[in-house]
Simulated assay, not measured.
Amino acid sequence: MDTIEITKEIDRVLELFGMTGVKAAEAMGVTYATFNSKKNPNNDRHKFNQKNLDDLKNFIREAFQKL
């Protein structure tokens, strides 16, 4: 997956589960400022990567297992 596809998938997951940027940043192990930088399409320095997507999905899986 390229960064555009990863960003779209992250946006889809966040919308599906109604997650805020703060909680998503926590799930990915990044600061909120870095999360916002990665979400900004005009920022060439920070981009979402496969690890960010995997961390987000694992966070959601673990949260559901606790229920």
Rank of each mutant, 00 (worst) to 15 (best):
M1H: 07
M1Y: 05
M1I: 07
D2C: 05
D2L: 02
D2F: 00
T3N: 07
T3S: 11
I4M: 02
I4P: 00
E5G: 15
I6G: 10
I6S: 03
I6C: 03
I6R: 06
T7F: 00
T7K: 02
T7A: 10
T7C: 00
K8C: 09
K8E: 09
E9P: 04
I10L: 02
I10Q: 08
I10W: 00
D11S: 04
D11C: 02
D11E: 15
R12W: 02
R12F: 04
V13D: 05
V13T: 11
L14V: 14
E15D: 08
F17L: 13
F17C: 05
G18A: 14
G18T: 14
G18I: 11
G18N: 15
M19Y: 14
M19D: 13
M19F: 08
T20D: 01
T20L: 00
T20E: 02
T20C: 01
T20V: 03
G21K: 03
V22Y: 09
V22R: 07
V22W: 01
V22T: 08
V22D: 11
K23T: 07
K23G: 03
K23C: 01
K23R: 10
A24P: 00
A24V: 01
A25E: 06
A25C: 06
A25T: 14
E26P: 00
E26I: 03
E26F: 02
A27E: 05
A27D: 06
M28L: 07
M28T: 04
M28H: 06
G29V: 06
G29S: 07
V30K: 03
V30H: 07
V30P: 00
T31Q: 10
T31C: 03
Y32D: 15
Y32W: 08
A33Y: 14
A33G: 13
A33D: 15
A33V: 10
A33E: 11
T34D: 11
T34N: 08
F35L: 12
F35N: 05
F35P: 03
F35G: 11
N36M: 04
N36F: 04
N36I: 04
N36Y: 02
N36H: 05
S37M: 09
K38W: 00
K39R: 15
K39W: 01
N40V: 04
N40Y: 03
N40A: 07
P41V: 12
P41E: 06
N42Y: 04
N43E: 13
N43D: 09
N43G: 09
R45P: 00
R45N: 11
R45H: 10
H46T: 09
K47P: 00
K47S: 13
K47A: 05
F48H: 06
N49C: 12
N49T: 06
Q50R: 10
Q50T: 11
Q50G: 12
K51R: 07
K51I: 12
K51L: 12
N52D: 12
L53K: 15
L53M: 09
D55W: 00
D55C: 10
D55E: 10
D55L: 02
D55V: 05
D55M: 05
L56E: 08
L56W: 03
L56P: 01
K57A: 06
K57D: 02
K57I: 11
N58H: 05
E62W: 05
A63E: 13
A63W: 03
A63V: 13
F64D: 11
F64G: 13
F64K: 12
Q65G: 12
Q65C: 10
Q65I: 09
K66H: 03
L67M: 14
L67G: 14
L67V: 15
L67C: 15
L67T: 14
L67K: 13
